[in-house]
Design a protein around this nucleic acid. Structure first.
Length: 436
DNA sequence: AACGCGTGGGA
DNA sequence: TTCCCAAGCGT
């Protein structure tokens, strides 16, 4: 048995006052000497015995836990009400914040995954116009659903919405399930989104932890381990559960996220406007810029890629990308990577031969389009192609479907952003606008 | 646990 | 221009 006592030192007087004292069973370590600071709080570990590495780690975790508990105590009564009051005053009007219909909350949350609010709103409006009910999604072909997602990225999200709609119609009578566990079981819905839907749409007292929440808590409680790692995540979960006022999950969860989006931003946070600044450990310690602690960053790979717009008898050849590939189910112009020692012109002719069996010639260079995706930075060389001999059926070695398309057919299909950019360029260009 | 999956905007 | 993202999920 040992005791962790936690004290906070008053800067002005140099005195420290007792914040808490927690008796613990088992072993612990004298990692912290008297007066040593952890997260800006003085920790006194009163113990002695021999320790293994595992026990050392456990004791450290307990001491940290004691620190967070000590920080939490004075916040419990004032922090959450202050934050909720602030949210009710400043919240942005959003389409799904009218009635919090489960269906609306669901679609908005999926759209907002890895996506900024301003960007998602117009997509949401368009979506609800076309798919007013869950059943209308289940009835629609995947192609059309992808078209309404075109440009948003992470297209698995759209495919999973369709899958989930089918599940809801088959197993829940067409009604969005109201239980946290059933929500979490739906395709495309993970821990964050399940928590968000459960709390916003159904008022269930469950946390919804996204990157905003992680950042806010990392600063409020000065979490000093990398925020994407397990240790910090568990801490955020515990804090979230502790600070959530019963019956107010809808407002509280949105309040924390809204704070992260509007005030407690990744760069240049507006602490002077923060309603809970007085509760913020990182601010007190003047280390807001160093919280949250970032993870390892992955490097960007540059890619040199070609694609070809083949015109034949007034139509344009396009193909549908295979399911499971990047941009699966979206349409594209054939192409691929420039191999070592190859020119872009050689690459596009070769790729056409490999993917379609067509022997093509370069008629014109259209443009170079630059765009990025996940960890890649793409330089896309785009060519206008023609064929001298009659063309056989495509061999389709890299596609599920193909089509000799009219401009209307190109308009109504979903393309990856880089290719859509190319289409728009060609429609502005007198050399090509007659074909596309 | 680490990686794959998109995109357009701001510094 | 270049870099760094922004309200995650699935495997």
């Amino acid at each position: 048995m040992y005791t962790v006592t936690v004290r906070r030192r008053q800067e002005a007087t140099g005195r420290s006052s007792l914040l808490g004292s927690l008796p613990r069973r088992g072993f612990a370590v004298a990692l912290y000497k008297k007066g040593q600071s952890l997260n800006g709080i003085n920790v006194f570990l009163k113990i002695c015995t021999q320790w293994t590495e595992k026990q050392t780690k456990s004791a450290l975790a307990k001491a940290r836990g004691a620190c967070f508990s000590a920080l939490l105590m004075p916040k419990k009564n004032t922090f959450s009400p202050t934050l909720i009051a602030w949210f009710k005053k400043i919240q942005r009007p959003l389409p799904w914040r009218q009635d919090y219909l489960p269906y609306h909350v669901w679609i908005s949350e999926i759209m907002l995954q890895q996506t900024q609010m301003d960007r998602a709103v117009p997509y949401f409006e368009r979506w609800m116009d076309r798919f007013p009910t869950i059943a209308s999604i289940a009835d629609a072909p995947e192609d059309e659903i992808l078209k309404y997602w075109e440009g948003l990225g992470y297209y698995t999200r759209a495919r999973n919405i369709r899958k989930a709609a089918l599940v809801i119609c088959a197993e829940h009578g067409g009604e969005f399930p109201a239980e946290h566990k059933a929500i979490l079981a739906l395709p495309g819905i993970g821990p964050y989104t399940a928590g968000a839907i459960a709390s916003l749409a159904f008022g269930l007292d469950v946390p919804a932890i996204d990157a905003n929440v992680e950042r806010v808590y990392a600063r409020l409680f000065d979490i000093d381990s990398p925020i994407k790692e397990k240790d910090a995540k568990k801490r955020v979960e515990a804090l979230s559960a502790e600070l959530l006022p019963a019956g107010q999950a809808r407002d509280y969860n949105q309040a924390v996220m809204e704070l992260g989006a509007l005030i407690c931003t990744p760069r240049a946070p507006r602490c002077e406007s923060c309603p809970v600044a007085e509760h913020c450990e990182a601010r007190r310690l003047d280390i807001v810029a160093f919280r949250p602690v970032p993870g390892k960053k992955k490097d960007i790979t540059p890619l040199n890629v070609v694609c070809g717009v083949l015109e034949h008898k007034g139509k344009i050849y396009i193909q549908k990308r295979p399911q499971g590939a990047v941009w699966g189910g979206l349409w594209e112009f054939p192409g691929g990577s420039i191999e070592a020692g190859e020119s872009p012109e050689q690459a596009v002719v070769r790729e056409f031969q490999e993917e379609t069996g067509f022997q093509v010639r370069i008629a014109d260079k259209i443009s170079i389009v630059r765009h990025g995706y996940t960890r890649f930075r793409v330089t896309l060389h785009c060519y206008f192609l023609q064929a001298d001999a009659p063309l056989p059926p495509s061999t389709m070695s890299a596609a599920d479907e193909c089509l000799w398309a009219t401009p209307e057919q190109i308009t109504e299909r979903a393309f990856p952003a880089g290719h859509r950019k190319l289409i728009d360029l060609m429609r502005q260009d007198l050399r090509f606008s007659q074909y596309i």
